[in-house]
Amino acid sequence: MIGPNKQIRAARYGMTIDVDRCTGCGACMVACAVENNVPPAHAGATDRNGITWIRVYKIDNGLPYPETRSAFIPVMCQHCGNETPCVHVCPQQAVDVDPATGVVGEMPQRCLGCRYCMAACPYHARYFNWWDPAWPKGMEKTLNPDVTPRMRGVVEKCNFCHGRWHAAKQQAAAEGKPDTEPVQYLPACAEACPIKAIQFGDLNDPAGAPARAAQSGGSFRLLEKLHTDPKIYYRSKRDWVRASANAPHPFAGQHEAGKENHRG
């Protein structure tokens, strides 16, 4: 709740991702894991039970070789603004939507590991710690002090790099700026994207790049029919890419709906 005696200008942080620019290099996935202290895979981890807060899926137009054409689409927590599914189902109140930023935040320490939120999330953007987090010997020295490592048995997900958001707020305080204005910062994926396909900013700021891009042609969101009001906008000039946004799962390829595509 925002109290009655404090007037702040609320932000609505969001992203626009240009699918036509994404080369599928994976820099965002690596930068995200480095930033958020996500451990390397356990030997038994697969693409079904690993932890990738942001995951780049390869989708295609469903035509046979050589007519097949592919695209890469990064999917992370969509930070739903309307009837946020994971918030509703959490029995622990471990998930909340920050009214000041619009970020769907999760507290792994509150999580009891029931994974109801994972079932509720239409975007498959939540990940469960099936194993104790383990880093090779010495590599724990490279952990980011701004983010707590999680333990086994809890769910975690993208929170727009809130460690960076904290740091930006702290910097703003040091510069004597008031806390009523939203701070500007970049999540790790947006910063790492070599081709700058990911743009991040306050969607409430009409002059900001993400807000303008979200309004432009070819803009779409994933599973818009569910009316969850995601804050991740995608862009593509290709019709089949935009059509795939309504597939129940990014890797439910058009070849055999529902069957997992191991390349995805």
């Binding site: 599928g24 994976g26 996935m29 690596v30 995200c32 894991a33 480095v34 996500v38 390397p40 895979a41 981890a45 697969t46 693409d47 690993g50 932890i51 990738t52 995951r55 780049v56 899926y57 390869k58 070789y65 890469f72 880093w135 090779p136 590599m139 191991h262 390349r263 995805g264």
Partner: peptide
């Protein structure tokens, strides 16, 4: 590369790992 590259090679199949082959 770094063990964290498992995000691309093992925890998703964004990149093809050296111990995998792709077939029609």
């Amino acid at each position: 590369g770094s063990p964290i590259l498992s995000k691309m090679y093992q925890e998703s199949n964004l990149r093809l790992a050296e111990d995998r082959v792709v077939l029609h």
